[in-house]
Design a protein around this nucleic acid. Structure first.
Length: 260
DNA sequence: AATCCGTACAACCGCAATCAT
DNA sequence: CATGATTGCGGTTGTACGGAT
């Protein structure tokens, strides 16, 4: 007794999509919207499995996709997000408007891995390969977090990061962030902040969307709200760079909250 | 011209998470 | 709460393409 197959495999096409199939899928989704992937192929007259349709739409046909080469800024953002999140490609993609998880994963495997190795950095651990190269460690590291919340990649709401925390440790973290202990990139290094590695803070990450973070912080006093510490600042981008996005209301990088 | 090899990327697969009943 | 259906994610594979031999 195995799992039931996701679709009737005997009568489905596989492999590369034809233009005709693409057009059918686009036309159907324009009229009916995304979702109901299991029933979509039949309704759209496609001999494809629902998963295949979803993948094709998400990774190739969606109108909001950005095609073309990755910029240097995107490269650096991916590296830093990977340092924070590990192989959570969908979360990383959520911070790169117009890019898909599959695209970023492929790009990572084909370009960035090599780039990091050439810098003497281990792509998985983000630490020096031989102990001589200077890695760019991340301030917060969720790679080994027990669970990471699922969030929609693009939203007009303002999400907030929150953590269960030890107050004294967070105070120390807050002081270190505000007290000029950061490097020019906005990050602290292992050497500079050996005791403030997030793993040692026992942070439990959760991400939520609230319209009034101050009030919600009050109603849940044990959850720190990290306002004015935007994600791209944490990642080392200055206002003139990617962080300028924080200023617009689409706010894809506006993961700002306050230390409580 | 033919073949080999490395690269890039689209697509598939299995599994886990989430949702609906 | 339990169970089955559905969706989404991440690892992996397949294949097209270009450059080297």
């Amino acid at each position: 007794m195995g799992r039931s197959p996701c679709c009737e495999k005997a009568h489905t096409n596989k492999g590369a999509w034809t233009k005709e199939e693409d057009q059918r899928l686009i036309r159907y989704i324009r009229v009916h919207g995304e979702g109901s992937w299991r029933s979509l192929p039949k309704a759209a007259g496609l001999l494809r499995c629902g998963k295949s349709c979803r993948l094709r739409w998400m990774n190739y046909l969606r109108p909001d996709l950005k095609r073309g080469n990755f910029t240097e800024d995107e490269d650096e953002l991916i590296i830093k997000l990977h340092g924070l999140l590990g192989n959570k490609w969908s979360l990383i993609a959520g911070r790169l408007p117009g890019r898909t998880d599959n695209e970023i994963k492929n790009y990572w495997n084909t370009h960035i891995k090599r780039k990091l190795v050439s810098r003497g950095i281990d792509p998985q651990s983000h630490r020096p390969l031989n102990g001589t190269a200077k890695a760019t460690p991340t301030e917060l590291d969720f790679r080994n977090a027990p669970t990471l919340p699922k969030i929609k990649p693009i939203t007009t709401a303002t999400p907030s990061l929150s953590f269960k925390y030890d107050e004294s440790q967070v105070k120390a973290k807050s002081d270190s962030l505000e007290g000029g202990n950061c490097t020019s990139s906005g990050m602290t290094t292992d050497e500079e902040q050996p005791s403030s590695r997030p793993n040692e803070l026992n942070l439990e990450l959760s991400i939520g969307f609230s319209t009034n973070s101050a009030n919600s912080a009050e109603s849940k006093p044990k959850v720190a709200k990290l306002k004015a510490v935007c994600l791209c600042w944490q990642l080392g981008f200055q206002r003139s760079e990617i962080c300028s996005n924080c200023e617009n209301t689409n706010g894809l990088f506006r993961y700002c909250t306050t230390l409580g």
